[in-house]
Structures are given as structure tokens and as C-alpha cells.
């Protein structure tokens, strides 16, 4: 397997916007800004800023990485469209990382020893986006089930039995729901928003997609709202 030496990662699906450049085992440039909207304006200048700060030309990149969601639908697409555009124009592979993995990877291993690690993300609806990972011990994050959109009052029943550590921007909401269900739960100390730093680090450890493989797909976890356009038929 060809070793990745230089990788650019982006994140715009959560309530923030970030870019990070990973080279030879470490992050050498990073920008992060929390924002609910405005990623379409900030993301590409932020990438340019990171490339400039790292003194790296685009054609030195071996690969790109991006979060695929779940998160805001628009943010998911802003990140993916940008990353696909870069991958296309540079003829480089693109690696997709879920926002669950990104927030889970930020949790120190000591905080989920013997505890299920649960990534819980804001959906801006009643449901929480949630995915459970095995307790620390493995080198890699090991998901216990695919991610899902789960109402808070069903969260306890949806999760595997056992003590949990919660990560992600919806951790407070999940905390309240799980405490009400008498579950042993506590929040991780790591930031709740996905960040390109984790995206880069996770992606650099993955095998490179083969040339010609499909682009990473968005992870929406919710069907589209079918409100017709304002200019559509009444």
C-alpha cells in the first residue's frame, strides 16, 4: 500500500468550518472557526490559508479527506462538493470520514476505558444523530452499529447495555436523556464539534482509495423534506 505523506482535510458539516494539513505524521497547519452558517464563504479561503501557512502547493498533496456528515445538509454538501472539486482537479483520491468518527477520535482513550463511546450530533430536529463505538483498547475506533437518527427518549433502549462516554455537540441532550433512564453516562472532555485535525489523522491511517473508485457519499441519515420550491406549482 502506498503511504500517504501529505494530506489536506476539510470539515464543514458541523456547526464549524475547519481545514488541516497533515504531513509526515503530524498536523503542520490548521484553521478552525465555529459558525452556524457561512461555510460557503469561509471554507476555500481557509484552505488557501492553510496551504499558505504550510508552504505547500496543491500538487504536493497525496490525498484529500472530508467529513461526510451527518450534520447540516447544506454543510455536508459544502464540504463534499469542495473536496470532490479539489480531488477532481488534482487527480487525487478523496477519503470520507463521518462526523461521528471525527468527534469520537477527539476523545482521550482514558475517558472511555471499559465504556462504550457514543458520538451524538445535533440534527436541528427532535432526533439525535448517534453512533456507538467499542470501549478503548483497540488502536482504531470500532463502530458497534451504523449511525442512526434516534429520538432522545429512545436513546437508552437504542444503545447497547453498559456505561457510556458521550462525545459530540448533542452530548448534553443525550446526557439528560440517559440520566433520566438511569444509565451510567458522562460527557467526554473533548470539544463537541468535528474538526479537520481528527479528519486528517483518521484519513492518513486509512488505505488510499484505488484510482477510479467512487467519491465518498454524503451521510444524511434523514430523508429530504419534500416542501415544493416557492416557484413550484401550488
Amino acid at each position: 500500500m502506498e503511504q500517504v505523506r501529505c494530506l489536506l482535510a476539510l470539515e464543514a458539516a458541523g456547526a464549524a468550518c475547519s481545514a488541516a494539513l497533515w504531513r509526515d505524521g503530524r498536523i503542520i497547519a490548521h484553521r478552525f472557526a465555529p459558525m452556524r452558517r457561512g461555510q460557503s464563504e469561509h471554507l476555500v479561503p481557509m484552505i488557501e490559508d492553510v496551504m499558505g501557512a504550510a508552504d505547500t502547493a496543491y500538487d504536493s498533496l497525496d490525498a484529500l479527506a472530508v467529513t461526510v456528515g451527518p450534520g447540516g445538509f447544506t454543510g455536508v454538501r459544502i464540504g463534499l462538493a469542495t473536496a470532490r472539486g479539489l480531488a477532481l482537479a488534482l487527480h487525487r483520491p478523496l477519503i470520507g470520514i463521518s462526523n461521528f468518527e471525527s468527534v469520537a477520535a477527539a476523545v482521550p482513550a482514558s475517558e472511555h476505558t471499559g465504556r462504550i463511546l457514543v458520538a451524538v450530533l445535533e440534527s436541528k430536529r427532535r432526533e439525535l444523530y448517534v453512533q456507538a463505538f467499542a470501549p478503548s483498547g483497540d488502536d482504531e475506533l470500532r463502530p458497534l452499529a451504523p449511525g442512526a437518527a434516534v429520538p432522545p427518549d429512545e436513546l437508552d433502549a437504542w444503545l447497547p447495555a453498559g456505561p457510556v462516554t458521550l462525545a459530540g455537540d448533542a452530548a448534553p441532550a443525550a446526557m439528560a436523556a440517559l440520566q433520566a433512564a438511569q444509565r451510567d453516562a458522562y460527557p467526554a472532555s473533548s470539544p463537541g464539534l468535528a474538526d479537520a485535525v481528527q479528519v486528517a489523522t483518521l484519513a492518513a491511517a486509512r488505505p488510499l482509495p484505488l484510482p477510479g473508485s467512487d467519491m465518498p457519499q454524503p451521510l444524511y441519515l434523514r430523508a429530504p423534506d419534500v416542501t415544493p420550491a416557492p416557484t413550484g406549482v401550488p
Partner: peptide, 10 residues
């Protein structure tokens, strides 16, 4: 975003 990315990369 696709357009901006291609423009930036090239």
C-alpha cells in the same frame, strides 16, 4: 463550491 475548489486547486 465545486467551482471554487477547481479554481483554487488550479
Amino acid at each position: 463550491m465545486t467551482g471554487k475548489a477547481i479554481a483554487a486547486a488550479r
